[in-house]
């Protein structure tokens, strides 16, 4: 009999609304948070749609996790409080990798891009969630936890707590937290960098709760608010607030690209390659954007020296 645990995110919804209203009022008074009506509506409708999509039975992912847990688990970990704590930490490590792949593989980006599609960065952006996450192989990253012996209901519960934690870091209203906190935890400052489209900030700070994963795996970039303020959205921003278009635009792009691609390898690469990959390099991946930006910076820095030399 599976453990019956509540869905933490459902319980947190009233808190989300109160905090959004508080941020709006604070933003209006201080200028440190900005909302826009249609953008907010789209974000919140995406969030509501994501909850509805979550009601569809998880099928493959949850079923596979329960199968592995019931048939092949290494340890009988049970339901003690420390199991929840360890599950929370390991689930956050799994989240780091699922998130990193969510940016580096177009198949997973097709679902995750929705969360990055607002040009605003406020608490409503946190709720701009995907409707199509279950169409990606993201569930694979949770299977090792089931194999270790964590019951899938516990994994789902701690994942919900993880999502709740990530709500408050989607704000410009908080500058920096105390130094010890910034060193260990994901914070608004770290996550602003993750949402930024500035070339030198791309593909950084994938952490959910603990920023230590980025520091361990070499993807941490600190925010430099004074010299390089974050600019949010996508490299190619969406020209629409229509939730349906927001939800499926990257899937449409993948299908179109695969349809027109020549050869099986190219078709497959449009699915599992990085976003922006093309056989002829006519679009830019994030690596190419970063290289291009570095080249420009080098030219800019060399320019005054050249002038002086002349």
């Amino acid at each position: 009999m599976p453990l019956d645990l509540p869905n933490p995110t459902d319980l947190a919804v009233p808190g989300f609304i109160v905090l959004m209203l508080a941020e709006m009022i604070y933003g209006r008074m201080s200028g440190r948070a900005v909302y826009e009506g249609k953008d907010t509506l789209t974000s919140l409708l995406m969030g509501t749609g994501s909850v509805v999509a979550g009601l569809i039975p998880a099928g493959l992912g949850y079923g596979a996790a329960y199968y592995i847990w019931s048939e092949w688990r290494l340890f009988d970990l049970g339901h003690a409080w420390w199991v929840f704590v360890v599950a929370f930490v390991l689930d956050d490590l799994a989240y780091y990798w699922v998130h990193r792949f969510g940016h580096r593989m177009r198949w997973m980006w097709a679902a995750h891009v929705i969360h990055h599609s607002s040009q605003h960065y406020n608490l409503s952006t946190a709720l701009r969630q995907t409707w199509t996450g279950k169409l990606t192989p993201g569930f694979i990253f949770a299977l090792p936890l089931a194999f270790l012996g964590f019951e899938p209901a516990i994994i789902a519960f701690v994942s919900g707590i993880n999502l709740i934690y990530q709500f408050w870091i989607h704000t410009e209203a908080i500058d920096r937290m105390p130094r010890w906190f910034e060193a260990v935890m994901n914070t608004p400052s770290h996550h602003r960098v993750h949402h930024a489209t500035n070339p030198d900030y791309l593909d950084a700070n994938y952490a959910g709760v603990f920023i230590i994963w980025d520091k361990m795996f070499g993807t941490f970039i600190p925010e430099d608010k004074a010299n390089n303020p974050c600019r949010y959205g996508l490299v190619h921003d969406l020209g629409t607030f229509n939730p349906l278009r927001v939800a499926v635009h990257e899937w449409v792009g993948i299908v179109r690209d695969m349809w027109h691609a020549k050869g099986l390898k190219n078709k497959l690469m449009f699915l599992i390659g990085p976003p922006g990959w093309t056989p002829d390099g006519s679009r830019m991946t994030s690596d190419m954007i970063k290289e291009d930006w570095k080249r420009r910076q080098a030219v800019k820095e060399a320019a005054p020296a050249n002038i002086a030399a002349e």
Binding site: I17, M20, L21, M24, I25, G27, R28, V34, Y35, E36, G37, K38, T40, L41, L44, S124
Partner: peptide, 11 residues
């Protein structure tokens, strides 16, 4: 909430 955002932050 969206209507409040629109009211507080007119474009």
């Amino acid at each position: 909430v969206a209507a409040i955002a629109r009211w507080l932050f007119p474009v």
